[in-house]
Design a binder for these strands. Structure first.
Length: 453
RNA sequence: GCGCCUCUAGCUCAAUUGGCAGAGCAACGGACUCUUAAUCCGCAGGUUCGGGGUUCAAGUCCCCGGAGGCGCACCA
């Protein structure tokens, strides 16, 4: 309707008839003439309703803001130049029994905004935009991966043994099987089995669940992209992150420089690549590495007032130092690479550095956006690492992994050398839409049950 | 889980040192044939998040509970 009738001159009425529908968002009554603003997913259109030419004018005056109506009539342009529909026939499609808040200020109460997102979407126009942008980003990712030969697959959400990440799972129960099952905390293990099965490039874009606290950056269920590429390594995954993120940004904004919470960030590839230890040194002027004894590393942590557990090895302590002193100030984008083996049970041994693995995390605006490695494909080594994890688990570490025999058997059949990548989609959307709170990019975020009377 | 802050009409907000709970928008009634947050007149609207306490008097002060925001913890 809007596109086809751009040429109409002010005060002119075009030939033919159009039919429009939507929710009434505004009335501007003029006695025997009413202007009404109709809105739907595609935009706004003004209705021009005259007593002399519209059906049932008296009933039209009784409509409420929020009512859904359909109307037909002739396209026209008003004296002030606004494209409108000169209504002849109209009908009430569905009444609204509740209002959408102040017509100018909308609704700002986060209780209503998050619990009743349907109201938020009408009351606050910008909110709709965020979710359209989220859709655009996800579409771009699928398009990019599909064009690059990746196959999208779906793997189980209900799992007997959850794995692929260090996190507490949600537990549920299968009645017929008389079995407790976990909701997945990562996509990793099944996707690797798909690689063993011969899919050279696979990805899954899906929900994972972690039984952890809520925060402006954490929702208990969130969307993760994981992809695996045979014959690739972690440096290839760095390229992949850069292409995915800068490409999505370009699609969304037409440029690769963004402003995030007042900070300008240039996402044009290539991005900086630095080892975790280089970045720790830049942030603290302290040197740490795995050639040092545990006592020396612990001494550095003490000087920096970073807490660690008495069972933590040097690798874990180094990671703690990084997370407490370095990451919180990293604007990035930067790929932080070469992690201690101790904290990375699924990543392949570093090709030249002992006790390190080929792993990186991408940090942008102080947040982890991606986590990737050259995947461990040696079944003997993998079994040893998982058994070490299982020992931690038995000792009370709820986030340590369990031994997944099905996964290990799969590796014994042989998995090609592979680069793997995980991207937190919600955080990517936050970054690209300049939102500080993850609840703003999740349509229905997790909230406590409302116990109020 | 811990700390700080917030919660008043359908919505957005006000209410001095503790002193009659108010406005704009929406709704409702009316005027108006080119409006753009239309305008104008009128009318109505309250468990001040819930419960308890102090006081002659509590939206305001104290205690308990609920929800939310932020921070911490947790989150490789």
């Amino acid at each position: 309707m809007i596109g086809e009738n751009e040429a109409i001159e002010p005060e002119a009425v075009a030939e033919g008839s159009v039919t429009v529908a939507g929710r009434v968002m505004r009335f501007r009554g003029q006695g025997k003439l009413i202007f009404a603003e109709l809105r739907d997913g595609s935009g706004n259109i003004q209705l021009f309703v005259e007593q002399s030419t519209a059906d049932d004018f008296d009933s039209f005056k009784l409509l409420n803001l929020g009512d859904w109506i359909g109307a037909s009539g002739m396209p026209m342009r008003t004296k002030r130049g606004e494209l409108s529909v000169k209504v002849r026939a109209w009908s009430l499609l569905a009444p609204a029994h509740r209002s959408f808040g102040d017509k100018w200020k909308g609704i700002s109460d986060p209780e209503v905004r998050y619990r009743q997102r349907e109201v938020d979407l009408w009351a606050n126009r910008d909110v709709r935009q965020i979710f359209l942008q989220r859709s655009t980003i996800i579409k771009y990712i699928r398009e990019f991966l599909d064009e690059n030969g990746f196959v999208e697959v779906e793997t189980p959400i209900l799992q007997a043994v959850e794995g692929g990440a260090a996190a507490k799972p949600f537990i549920t129960h299968h009645n017929a099987l008389h079995a407790d099952l976990s909701l997945r905390i990562a996509l990793e293990l099944y996707l690797k089995r798909a690689l063993v099965g011969g899919f050279g490039r696979v990805y899954e874009l899906g929900r994972v669940f972690r039984n952890e606290g809520l925060s402006p950056r954490h929702n208990p269920e969130f969307t993760m992209l994981e992809l695996y590429q045979a014959y690739a390594d972690y440096t290839d995954m760095m390229d992949m992150v850069e292409q995915l993120v800068s490409g999505a940004c370009l699609r969304l904004h037409g440029k690769t420089v963004i402003s995030y919470q007042g900070q300008e960030i240039d996402l044009s590839p290539p991005w900086r690549r630095a080892t975790m230890e280089e970045l720790i040194f830049e942030a603290t002027s302290e040197t740490v590495n795995l050639a040092m004894t545990r006592e020396e590393v612990a001494g550095v942590a003490d000087r920096l007032k970073v807490a660690y557990a008495k069972d933590d090895g040097s690798g874990k302590i180094i990671q703690e130092i990084y997370e407490k002193t370095t990451e919180p100030n990293l604007m990035g984008p930067v790929h932080v690479y070469d992690y201690p083996k101790e904290v990375s049970p699924l990543a392949r041994d570093h090709r030249s550095k002992q006790n390190y693995v080929e792993r990186f995390e991408t940090v942008v605006a102080k947040k982890e956006l991606a986590n990737a490695f050259s995947e461990l494909n040696d079944p003997v080594e993998q079994r040893a690492r998982l058994e070490a994890q299982a020992a931690l688990r038995a000792a009370g570490d709820e986030e340590a992994m369990a031994v997944d025999e099905d996964f290990l058997r799969a590796l014994e059949h042989g998995m090609p050398p592979t680069g793997g990548l995980g991207v937190g989609i919600d955080r990517l959307v936050m970054l690209l839409t300049d939102q500080p709170n993850i609840k703003e990019v999740i349509l229905f975020p997790a909230l406590r049950k409302d116990e109020r009377q």
